[in-house]
Nucleic acid binder design. Structure first.
Lengths: 234, 234
DNA sequence: CTTTCTGCTTACCGACTGGTAAGCGAGTGT
DNA sequence: ACACTCGCTTACCAGTCGGTAAGCAGAAAG
């Protein structure tokens, strides 16, 4: 009577594939694609190399799957993020803030992306053209309109600006564990300081001066910037 | 009876070492340390792998030599750059401009640095602490003084700012061959557009608004900004 | 001449790489 | 009972990796 075989009816231990993707993401991000072997990935998952090769026909396919999972994750999360941000009063701060939390929530994906850019520029161009360019075009056209209205700086180059800011956020997050060396304060506070500065740089590069006076003690407008303004130690 | 062995008296074909360093720099930057084999490097130099291993006892030592050559090159060139810049009227624009030209003049070194940050965070921290932190501290204390005087923005976090801008310049240059995908204009003009925008972002994130009106058509003060301000196509 | 050193080359090496082939136990369908 | 597929495991492979050992041509020193 059971005529349907929908997708994956009785898969008891089918969780090795997602776990392999997670482990591969971590290892490829940490050591690079060439630096992490199939045995390393298999070892972290707790299976043999051949079990891995059963799920992914080749290492190259594992790579594609890892990258595919990354863009899938982003394509699912980003529209929600951008929509939520566009509802807020200060769209830009919300978008940048969400992007930062987004990348910072798993730096491995940011590192993976940077490595991919370095390892495979040609494939990266395709990936960007098919999955990133749309976002960039939307945001930059929005910026261009704001520029015409005078709500955004007149000297901004929208597309280049978005590209630069995206880059800044991604590698800022990717290199957080190294960046704190140049900061003087307590190392624990380094990450939020850098992130706050990234937000500030992105913001002031887009908006005209809100206060002509040089010392705006008041957080200007949003309450999220209030947290940004404080800096710690004497 | 020969007591003197000065340094390297008669070395006819001793140029394999510098050529190997150049080739290794290129290959490590392009494929990563694990992705480029000793044979690859040797092949590019035109010698055998064992000839390479004669000059560099191990691949790891080749890596150290490549990185050492990079920091040596920078330590020789940077002070000259910074001094020349500090003589100019608009110090900041000059410094950023020189840094950009500096990194853009050989993107391989920028890529190599980014890869090193990803591959060996711990060693990168040491390298930064010993060779970069000094520059950052000097520039950021200079910025901090400017901030007190009101010539720099009050909300800037000097150290975090310098770290972020350095990062922006380095990876901006490293990822130039990929970035142009998101730009609409002619691909040939992409690099200068992105670089101009990087300069603009770094500048406006540091200096207070020069004109309270939203449309500053006049270059306000320096003549180098006049060149920066122009954007190409309609 | 002989000795000694440099800058290689040839010949190997074991470890490990990604990948293939075949088998096999457990569950399922008929 | 049977065949069949799934999800592996064991066994094995050729190729490449970084690295070692020894020899060898040539120049320099005695």
């Amino acid at each position: 009577m059971v005529a349907q075989r929908p997708a994956r009816p009785p898969r008891p231990t089918d969780d090795v594939r997602p776990r392999a993707l997670a482990a591969a993401t971590r290892l490829f991000a940490a050591r690079g694609f060439e630096g992490a072997s199939l045995q390393d990935v298999a070892g972290e998952v707790g299976v043999t190399k051949q079990a891995l090769l059963y799920h992914f026909a080749s290492k190259e396919e594992l790579r594609r799957a890892v990258l595919g999972a990354m863009v899938t994750h982003w394509n699912e999360a980003l529209p929600r993020v951008l929509l939520a941000a566009s509802a807020a009063d200060d769209r830009f701060d919300a978008v940048v803030g969400e992007l930062l939390r987004f990348f910072a929530s798993d730096p491995d994906r940011a590192r993976l992306l940077v490595r991919h850019l370095l390892d495979r520029p040609a494939e990266s161009r395709e990936l960007i053209a098919s999955h990133v360019k749309g976002y960039v075009a939307a945001i930059s056209s929005y910026i261009a309109r704001g520029r015409e209205r005078g709500t955004h700086r007149a000297d901004v180059d929208p597309e280049a600006y978005v590209a630069a800011v995206l880059q800044l956020l991604v590698v800022g997050v990717a290199s957080l564990p190294v960046l704190d060396v140049v900061l003087d304060g307590p190392r624990a506070k380094a990450a939020p300081r850098v992130i706050a500065e990234l937000r500030r740089i992105a913001r002031v590069a887009l908006f005209p001066a809100e206060a002509p006076a040089p010392a705006p003690r008041r957080p200007t407008r949003t309450r999220s910037t209030a947290r940004t303004a404080r800096r710690g130690d004497p």
